[in-house]
Design a protein around this nucleic acid. Sequence first.
DNA 1: TGCAGTGATTGATAAATGTCAAACTCTCGT
DNA 2: ACGAGAGTTTGACATTTATCAATCACTGCA
Lengths: 232, 232
Amino acid sequence: MPESHRPDIRKLDLFSEMSDENFQSLMHASYLQTFPPQIELITEGDSSDFLHVVVDGSVELFARWNNRETSVAIVRPISTFILAATLRDAPNLMSARTLEKSRIVLIPSEDVRRIFDEDNNFARAIVCELASGYRASIKKTKDLKLRTSLERLANYLLRQQIREGGGPEFQLQTEKKRLASYLNMTPENLSRAFKSLKPYGVEVDGSKITISNQSDLEKFARPSPLIDDKKV
Amino acid sequence: MPESHRPDIRKLDLFSEMSDENFQSLMHASYLQTFPPQIELITEGDSSDFLHVVVDGSVELFARWNNRETSVAIVRPISTFILAATLRDAPNLMSARTLEKSRIVLIPSEDVRRIFDEDNNFARAIVCELASGYRASIKKTKDLKLRTSLERLANYLLRQQIREGGGPEFQLQTEKKRLASYLNMTPENLSRAFKSLKPYGVEVDGSKITISNQSDLEKFARPSPLIDDKKV
DNA sequence: TGCAGTGATTGATAAATGTCAAACTCTCGT
DNA sequence: ACGAGAGTTTGACATTTATCAATCACTGCA
């Protein structure tokens, strides 16, 4: 793999504390590949041959069952995905597709597992990463089970607002179709849900959102650190 | 902590590979406590002072938001819970209550983290445990997002059937009220869902379930290893 | 520039799920 | 044995969410 992205990858919590030697060994075994949009990188059920690192573009993780499909996460640079399957040498539980032209580093799972065995700092970092991912997944379950779709949307908007800097105006970084699937609703319903949030001060213009009444929206959404906070 | 349960705890994947010395040290620092039914052991948001091990009885993990409550898991002997919060020294995301009189080993989180730092075998075991938990949580998300409540119930019954030995007759090990919450439905709806499954060969008598037409139920439920299998 | 294809919205309707009230059942302790 | 209280079931009804069909809006390409 060429060296250009190594410093950025090295900065990830997952890789920042491991020995130089082991990091270089991991990178040496990896491939950097560029994929066009809409390529299915992984199909659920496949064995997990590579730990993936998105260095450019974006990747959707989704799942299928019985002819239905749902969006589980959207991965943006720079982050890894499919770590748990890699470590357990188990089949991937989710499929992955590029949303746009994307550059992905593929680290062979064997090497990840080998260096996990050798490098204690790497093993510790993996524990942190897994614990975070696990907790994020629990939060998602709480969001799904405890909130109506309208409440999920309202809280999503507040989270997205923070990610985008906290101002009253920001962009949805996702097609509404995909956002609907992520929030477990139909596109039609999402469209209606946006209208239902208008009385609470949510204005929608294409993918531009304006929160014209922050406190009203927050009073409706009731965000909780135990569901919505990135940290914690 | 008295010694009687140590061999059983030692056999857990999480503890089986660590050094004797470190295991004894963990146990030495722990408490074995007996709790009456319906005691709230943990309230979400609390800091995670102890890793819990259920050695007898059963514990429900649940979450609250906005005056609503949902059942997330039921933990039966011998298993641990709240591992991710313990490791990250982060607040618990779920509350926990005893369902019946239960005996719980409380291992101070500090000691878990200390020995995690010292004992590489323990660290590896923790990675496996976290990866499994993470994957189980992803499966739960897929179950929730891709299936209707009727399909969730049908698949739950098939899973429970396997846990109980695989025969056509088995017991629900949970109150229906709690099962309803676990499956994200109301008790009224669960009651009706059981009736809707009758044409597929599901007979209900109190907490005794009889699957009188295995293949019809399976054809309806369409269980998937990537959602329903314990291993994988 | 215009056209095809996809995404987004809207309205009408259907299906799924929740709520409320009442009746019934079971368990447990007196 | 009895009664209180919780769990369960049932029916009637309300709300939420999905589906279907049509239209509109946007994008990219010939």
